[in-house]
């Protein structure tokens, strides 16, 4: 089967960028490619309609974010099964290079919707209204989720490291 016209070019041009979004939005890095592939499959099936609108990327990005959120929520239900030992949490490291790794780890501890807001706002550089459109919520919700996410990240980093990062 031949790809729909323009689909292969779109994947070649924007695939890596979308993979990076998926990587940041998913609970586990291994999931990213699977989520991207599922999102592209949906886009491929609806490609002719998408091309008419001439903006496939926001559509694919929206699917990626929604898939990542729904997968994380499904997994969260399973997490309610009690375990005898508390989850491991690495001690925050203070050096600059390690700090970045701790930040990415911290990003993965955020609830899925807050993580999506952080990725869309601070990595994709989307405006609050664009982020709200993708998540299907109000601009006010985006603002409050972003604010809560940053508070959580500061708490995750701990006082010692937060001092290095600044307010």
């Amino acid at each position: 089967m031949n790809p729909p016209e323009g689909f292969a070019e779109f994947v070649a041009a924007r695939g890596t960028s979308l993979l990076r979004t998926a990587y940041l939005a998913c609970d586990f890095p291994d999931e990213a490619e699977d989520v991207l592939q599922s999102a592209l499959e949906r886009a491929c099936r609806n490609w002719h309609r998408l091309r008419a609108d001439a903006a496939p990327e926001p559509y694919v990005r929206k699917i990626i974010i929604n898939l990542a959120i729904s997968r994380a929520r499904r997994r969260a239900i399973l997490r309610f099964i009690p375990t005898h030992s508390p989850p491991d949490r690495p001690a925050p490291a203070a050096s600059d290079v390690e700090l970045r790794q701790v930040l990415v780890d911290g990003l993965r501890t955020l609830p899925p919707r807050q993580r999506a807001v952080v990725v869309l706002r601070y990595w994709e550089d989307l405006t609050e209204s664009q982020t709200a459109q993708i998540l299907g919520c109000s601009v006010g919700t985006v603002k409050s989720q972003a604010s809560k996410a940053l508070v959580r990240l500061r708490a995750w980093l701990g006082e010692e490291v937060t001092g290095l990062v600044g307010s």
Binding site: R100, L150, L153, T162
Partner: peptide, 26 residues
């Protein structure tokens, strides 16, 4: 804020090595 800026750098570095497979579209 500095946290946002560092977060942005952290996300950029964490994804810098990622590339799609050339045959992904296929």
């Amino acid at each position: 804020s500095d946290l946002e800026s560092r977060l942005r750098h952290a996300m950029t570095e964490a994804t810098a090595e990622l590339r799609i497979a050339p045959d992904l579209a296929d």
